[in-house]
Design a protein around this nucleic acid. Structure first.
Length: 568
DNA sequence: GCCGTTTTCGGCCCGACTGTTTTCAGTCG
């Protein structure tokens, strides 16, 4: 898929326009187009072929033509023309905190600085200090920023404990009444760039609170510091924003802190259209004098004419328009989940017995559970074989006689290089649920990998594709596959895609589920290797909720009878 | 450059912090 290429080129255009000093609205339009593409799991080539590019929000005549050009030629003449004025390399300067388009443009125009290395040399040689406006203080700020490693996205599960620690620390400060975690953590994105905290206190204490916050042991450097908003970089490299507001602004402030940016921008636009002013302090009349709503989020949403929007879906993907019509989707919740579809036991590489897993499933109020131990040749998985499958079946039958949770016997087999499976068909016939996954040989082209998975789906016994992209959030990107083609095959062969709830996988991504949930069915599997990991189902639910899934979109909400009927 | 519950033309969210050009531009979220 060429989606990444298109995103890269449009971002370069936006950056260059900023450096050149073009209209901020034109720049914004390109950035919006990039946002839109990033929220799409569909193959941009397919979208181009089917002439649906302009259906993407924020993409009109001009940008759609450039997208077509990039898809066909790998580049667009418009970008070439821009790079004649400013080399594309100059955009790398904008990756430094505190340097935007204007500064980058000045550095290039006045001193010919094109790269971070050039900039370091110009500081070293004293050349930069000769440039008007670049005082000692400003250069010191840039120098400091150069030592920052720009914070990278990290898996949600790794950031949550850090955020909770900060929350606990701040709640321990007498002058703070309450603390909420906002931002992308509250929206439950799979990966997180920085931590947004929102505290409530009394105005006279704001400065003291910020002093305490910015002097925490875990702070590496203070990025910005004011009485209302402070940003610090922790020693572990994560940026933390703290916003303090008075109690009166709790709701409007939390909406602001939670975002997403595009969501809040749309809310403010709607308020403005109704001659109201919305900011983090509240919803006001046009002059900003009379306060209309601010204490709770519900109150603010209601006052601008819509129902409450759950944080998980605040991405400006149409949720605001539905909230205005009071017709938001009834998002799936934990109570709807009747089973886990992907669980390993000590029959293969899991650590828990089937009994232990069954007991934990009972505690979770599940009705049933699908055991899917590995079958294959790789000894690392302590894989099942024909004999073990038969024995395990007997064990399951015994447990089912006394357990309140019904156990189904499934399997997770390998999709081999040629798309065949690591288990003979004669064994698949008697299993309740067959997951096929890629576990080896990742370095294939997108076409080859797509074909490999499609071939596996042609096997009539395969029910689901496990962790479809193979991504591990803290280790490797997934292999590229063409989702448009995979989905077509899913429809043809009635195969389901997995939402792998292992918090380091979260595979497939919520964009995939969002785009295709009405075409195929998805199931959530924790891929648990011990009974404690059954609780990871919550991470899978995050994906489903962010993708606007209702009960009907997720197979785990079916009873075992309904599921087996569907499989038959 | 995009878009339409006043508009196919004229708008485009709002505010905090920084450093400096002492009234504001640049950057960021």
């Amino acid at each position: 898929m060429k989606n990444e290429l298109v995103i890269e080129k449009l971002t370069q255009i936006a950056d260059l326009l900023e450096i050149i000093g073009e209209s901020v609205y034109k720049i914004r339009a390109y950035r919006k187009a990039v946002d839109s593409l990033q929220q799409t799991a569909e193959d941009i080539e397919v979208i181009v072929q089917e002439e649906r590019v302009k259906e993407l929000p924020g993409i009109g005549d001009a940008i759609s033509e450039k997208i077509k050009e990039i898809v066909v030629n790998g580049n667009t003449i418009y970008l070439d023309k821009l790079t004649q004025k400013v080399p594309v390399q100059v955009t790398s300067l904008m990756k430094i905190e505190g340097i935007g388009g204007k500064t980058a443009g000045k550095l290039y125009k006045e001193l010919g600085i094109k790269s971070i290395t050039d900039l370091e040399e110009a500081i070293e040689s004293g050349l930069l200090a000769e440039l008007p406006g670049f005082t000692e203080k400003k250069i010191a700020k840039i120098t400091r920023a150069l030592t920052f490693v720009k914070s990278e996205r990290r898996p949600l599960f790794k950031v949550i404990p850090i955020a909770l620690n900060l929350k606990t620390f701040l709640e321990g400060i007498d002058q703070i009444q309450s603390v909420e975690i906002g931002g992308s953590i509250r929206r439950r994105k799979s990966t997180i760039r920085d931590i947004d905290l929102h505290a409530i206190g009394k105005e006279e204490d704001f400065e003291l609170i910020m002093d305490i916050f910015s002097q925490m042991d875990s702070v590496e450097v203070i990025v910005v510091k004011g009485p209302l908003k402070t940003t610090v970089k922790l020693t572990n490299g994560i940026n933390v924003d703290l916003r303090i507001l008075k109690e009166q602004s709790s709701g409007s402030g939390l909406i602001h802190s939670t975002g997403s940016r595009n969501h809040t921008v749309k809310l403010r636009t709607i308020a403005d259209r109704n001659n109201l002013l919305l900011n983090e302090y509240g919803l006001f009349d046009e002059e900003g004098k009379t306060l209309i709503a601010s204490t709770t989020e519900e109150e603010v949403y209601k006052a601008i004419g819509m129902s409450f929007i759950p944080p998980d879906i605040r991405e400006d993907r149409g949720e605001i328009e539905l909230a205005q019509k009071n017709s938001l989707p009834d998002l799936i919740s934990l109570d709807d989940i009747k089973a886990d579809f992907h669980v390993h036991t000590n029959w293969s590489d899991g650590k828990s017995t089937i009994d232990e897993i069954a007991f934990t499933a009972t505690e979770r109020n599940y009705e049933y559970l699908i055991i899917t131990d590995h079958f294959g040749k790789n000894p690392i998985y302590n894989p099942m074989n024909e004999e073990k499958i038969a024995k395990q079946r007997k064990t399951i039958e015994q447990i089912n006689q006394s357990s309140s949770v019904e156990i189904l016997q499934g399997v997770e087999c390998d999709i081999l290089k040629d798309g065949s499976l690591s288990i003979p068909n004669k064994l698949l016939r008697d299993l309740d649920f067959v997951i096929a996954s890629v576990h080896s040989i990742f370095n294939m082209s997108e076409e080859e990998m797509t074909m490999r998975i499609i071939t596996a789906m042609d096997n009539e016994f395969v029910n689901g594709i496990g962790h479809p992209t193979g991504r591990q959030l803290d280790r490797r990107d997934g292999y590229s596959i063409n989702f448009s083609k995979i989905i077509e095959k899913c429809i043809e062969t009635k195969t389901f895609l997995e939402i792998n709830a292992n918090p380091n996988r979260l595979d497939v991504d919520d964009n995939v589920v969002f785009d295709f949930k009405n075409k195929i069915d998805f199931y959530i599997g924790t891929d648990s290797h011990n009974h404690q990991q059954l609780k990871n189902i919550g991470y899978g639910l995050n994906i489903a909720r962010r993708a606007w899934c209702e009960k009907k979109n997720i197979l785990n909400t079916l009873t075992s009878k309904e599921l087996l009927k569907k499989l038959a």
